[in-house]
Computed example of a mutant assay.
Amino acid sequence: MSNLSQRKEQLAAFDRLLTIMDELREQCPWDQKQTIESLRHLTIEETFELSDAILESNLDEVKKELGDILLHIVFYAKIGSEKGAFDISIVIDSLCDKLIRRHPHIYGDTEAKDEKTVKENWEKIKLKEKGNTSVLGGVPRSLPALIKSMRIQEKARGVGFDWEEKHQVWEKVEEELEEFKTEFNVVDGQEIDKEKATGEFGDLLFSLINYARFIDINPEEALEKTNLKFIKRFQYLEQSAKSSGKKLEDMSLAEMDVFWEEAKKLSIQTSK
């Protein structure tokens, strides 16, 4: 199929979606009732479902979840049109204009030979466009803390505020870990300053996230993969205990550890 034929199919599919959206808004009681506010939490849920599909490398599910998110985008635009605020063409044109402005190395005279320069230019242009008094002003307040840390660090790096070498970042991790151990590795029963401990632990996590970013590891993705791995192993433990006629609450840690080690070995064999 030629690029021209493919583009015609894409435009026809999008036109079909817009037509269906118009019909649903006019005829379906549920769709008629929805507002931008009522759709918000559903959009968040769909985004997490897309994230799950990506982590599972399930392209068929990625395709489905992208469709759900596209529906939400068209839905918001339809409501915006009804309010006389914007429609889908304005949304798309605004996006196109932004992409052109923020890629001056493609659509202008600026040179950018590597990804680092592209990101730096993007952040500088974004800061100027939004009129923020701070580089960090564009970081959403409601972002989960771990992802927010990543974005804060990336934005700071975009204007040159960053470590030069990865060993410097790791030294910072070790420094924060030592501070935490020294002050809060106390004997059992001894009270600690909870507020101060929380702050120090936050510093440690922030430095670890920084190091992960520096060696091109997405810490949120890494943690989620570990979460999923733990869930699978724990569920194996539960099932193995049940098959043995035992309940977890009645088992010793040593007994549970036998099944846990089996789960670890099984996961290694499965990954080969």
Rank of each mutant, 00 (worst) to 15 (best):
V135M: 06
I125R: 05
T182C: 07
Q6D: 13
N185G: 14
D22M: 05
D216N: 14
E175P: 06
H103L: 05
Q10S: 11
F201T: 10
S207C: 09
E45T: 04
L127M: 09
V74R: 00
E26I: 06
L146D: 02
E154M: 02
D250A: 11
F161R: 06
E171F: 12
A222T: 04
K246N: 00
L208M: 07
V118E: 06
I88W: 01
S2Q: 08
T270Q: 11
D87K: 07
R233F: 04
P144N: 10
G80D: 00
S81R: 12
S252R: 11
I152R: 06
E255R: 07
L11T: 02
H167Q: 12
W260D: 04
E61Q: 07
I54A: 14
E82R: 01
T226Q: 14
E255P: 00
E111P: 09
K242P: 03
L223M: 10
K130C: 14
F48W: 11
D31K: 14
L39T: 01
A145Q: 13
F184Y: 12
M21V: 12
V173E: 01
D193G: 08
D114G: 08
C28A: 11
K172G: 04
P219D: 05
L39H: 03
H41V: 14
K272I: 14
L136I: 08
V187I: 12
I44L: 13
Q10I: 11
R40V: 07
Y107W: 08
E111Y: 05
T110C: 04
L50P: 02
E164L: 05
L127G: 07
L223I: 01
I231R: 08
E37I: 06
V169D: 01
S38N: 05
I73T: 14
V139D: 02
G131I: 07
E37H: 03
I44F: 07
I90V: 15
Q190W: 12
D216V: 04
K242T: 01
S2H: 10
P104L: 10
H167G: 10
K242V: 00
K225C: 03
E56S: 05
M150N: 03
E123P: 01
K83E: 15
F201H: 11
E111L: 09
K98F: 15
K194W: 10
K229Y: 06
A212T: 07
E183P: 00
E221S: 12
A12N: 14
V91S: 06
G202N: 11
D15L: 10
I215H: 09
N227C: 03
I147W: 03
K194P: 01
S57I: 11
Q10A: 12
M256P: 04
L59E: 08
N132Y: 14
L95W: 11
E179N: 06
E129S: 05
K246G: 02
Q168A: 13
P219A: 06
L177S: 14
T117L: 02
E46Y: 08
T198Q: 07
